[in-house]
């Protein structure tokens, strides 16, 4: 009897394991290994493919490559920070300040724009901000300006677009973590004479740290890997590292160089995630829940 049940369980295991293994090995593990291997191959002078670290040397020798890399990383951290600063008061308002009966509808309203495709959202910003755009139109009408100005294609608008795109991934974890904060802690601090800032830094932020970390990690990662927003909203000078990868793959057709770049991006994103998790003493499986 017992062996029979045992045998049935193994069949179940096999049934569930096969598709999952196929998925993870064929679409995740092997492609990543291939990416890694290809990044160490390049053509020598005779036009043969050989093992070398040329692709990585190119990255360090050409300032445009590593400057773009550093810029992308710095801006992604900035975007994560801005998103946090903007989202925290909103999450606090929804969980602690607004009357409970409005809570549900406000949260729903908050999430609604993010169901819409990123492409459409970026397009919306483009028709708002461009030289013939809606904001310029109103500023001219109101007489605040005499000449339309191009607000698009600047680093600042690119950051605005990236913050907008990633907002959801900061607001949701913040709301859920603030929801679990006991109101009486804030009340007690208030009764004992704490002011707003000390309540913010001594109670709210320490309690919200898990949410802040998971939100920041996701925002950072998505921003780092974003192609659409920097490409459409950034200017000629605001090259994003994913655009370098795209150029190597699609324009120059240098896949080996492109995979070296891809691997560097993957390395950076994993490194920052790892540091974030270590600093906050969390694990990946906890963060994703």
């Amino acid at each position: 009897m017992k062996t029979e049940i045992k045998k049935q369980f193994r069949w179940g295991l096999l049934f569930f394991l096969t598709p999952v293994l196929l998925w993870l090995i064929l679409l995740i593990v092997l492609p990543q290994i291939d990416l890694f291997v290809m990044s160490f191959r390049s053509e020598n002078d005779a036009g043969e493919m050989v093992w070398s670290i040329t692709n990585y040397l190119n990255f360090f020798h050409e300032p445009i490559y590593w400057l773009t890399f550093v810029r992308t990383a710095t801006y992604s951290i900035l975007v994560a920070f801005f998103t946090f600063v903007i989202a925290l008061p909103v999450a606090f308002y929804i969980t602690k300040v607004v009357k409970p009966r409005f809570q549900g509808s406000l949260t729903l309203l908050l999430l609604l724009p993010f169901w819409v495709s990123e492409m459409v959202r970026v397009y919306g910003w483009m028709i708002l901000l461009r030289e013939s755009g809606v904001i310029n139109h109103f500023l001219l009408k109101l007489g605040l300006m005499t000449e339309p100005i191009e607000m698009l294609y600047r680093d600042s608008t690119m950051i605005l677009g990236l913050v907008y795109t990633s907002m959801l991934f900061m607001v949701v974890p913040l709301i859920s973590v603030l929801d679990s904060l006991d109101d009486s802690l804030i009340e007690a601090a208030y009764d004992l004479g704490a002011n707003m800032w000390s309540i913010l830094f001594k109670i709210i932020i320490p309690h919200a740290t898990p949410g802040i970390v998971s939100g920041s990690i996701v925002v950072f990662m998505l921003t780092l890997g974003n192609y659409l927003t920097p490409n459409l909203m950034g200017g000629k000078n605001s090259l994003w590292f994913t655009e370098q990868i795209y150029n190597q793959f699609i324009a120059s057709f240098n896949w080996n160089q492109g995979s070296a770049f891809g691997f560097l991006l993957l390395f950076l994103s994993s490194l920052v995630i790892w540091i974030g998790l270590k600093l906050s003493r969390q694990t990946l499986s906890k963060v994703v829940q």
Partner: peptide, 29 residues
């Protein structure tokens, strides 16, 4: 089963791999 933790970690990996990298790695493979 054995290696359950490892496989679980692998299952989460697509969340931390940027979409662009997934794209190029699958294209290359």
């Amino acid at each position: 089963f054995r290696l359950r933790q490892l496989l679980y970690f692998l299952m989460l990996a697509p969340l931390v791999i940027p979409g662009v990298i997934l794209g190029i790695s699958i294209l290359m493979f």
